[in-house]
Amino acid sequence: MSAGSHISSPIPARIVIAVSAWISAAVVLSIFLFLAWFCRPLLDTTVLSSLLSWDWRPFQGDFGILSMLTGSLLLASSSMLLAFPVGMGICCFVHGVGPPGPARLVLWTIKLMTSVPTVVYGFVAVFVLVPLLRDVFREGSGFSLLAAILGLAVLVLPTVVLMLHSQFLTIEPQVRLTAAALGMAPSQKLLHLVIPASGRGFLAAAILGLGRALGDTMIPLMLAGNAAQLPGSVFDSIRTMTAHIALVVATDSRSLAYLSLFACGLLLFMTTALINLGLRMLAGNRENGS
């Protein structure tokens, strides 16, 4: 700060930068405080127990959110169970099983998939996937858990693939020449060297994908049918917490209905925070480990 300090004084600029950084941090805090503030009535145990029940019948005074919670968890985990192995297959294809040209094309397509609006996926699924499921399985309207699982799996696939891809990139170049010089086929290299060495990265990809699947609103809202119930099969309709929030705000309900909305919001916020903490611990361990 010696020679040029008369041209532009560095102190105010630094303060502006620091303040705007802390504004960003304050946003996160204020979201939490708002949700917590609106959830105050939950401290009353009778209110709490009425929310923690399985029935959602707003006109009879039942405001249970447990079926939404189950719906969210069920949908997110099953779509990840579908997307993760497929994502792994795509990653192996990109890293040696497939020829270089098609591998680049596949990776590029995956990146392009991230730019498709969620609502467009939902829109096309409503007019292609739902009628297809209705015709093939001849059960219900087609707006079902299964439709949402398939739609959501497509939505989180790029997240999973790109995360796995970055993990593969840290290990595969190290062993590529060695494995080839030893006469290993690309699939052998991936199965026996790269995949065993990247367990932590896979966990991170799974957690991140699960977070996205839990947080998505439009796919379950448009495809899952939104009946607040426990599904008996994949052809039944379900309602997720995210869809619940969207639906309750749209239909003007009474006060306990609003409370259920903020309770769902708080649960989602906590889940996001937990997921982030988990990812951070994974990353921290990796830095210490190596």
Binding site: A181, G183, H192
Partner: peptide, 27 residues
């Protein structure tokens, strides 16, 4: 792959696989 199984190679910098000593030999 079959060719490289019959033509061994050792590199300039040691390139052990990220495995144990035993697995390096057996895998």
């Amino acid at each position: 792959e079959r060719l490289r199984g019959r033509v061994g190679m050792v590199f300039q910098s040691p390139n052990v696989l990220p495995l144990s000593i035993e697995r390096n030999m057996l895998l």
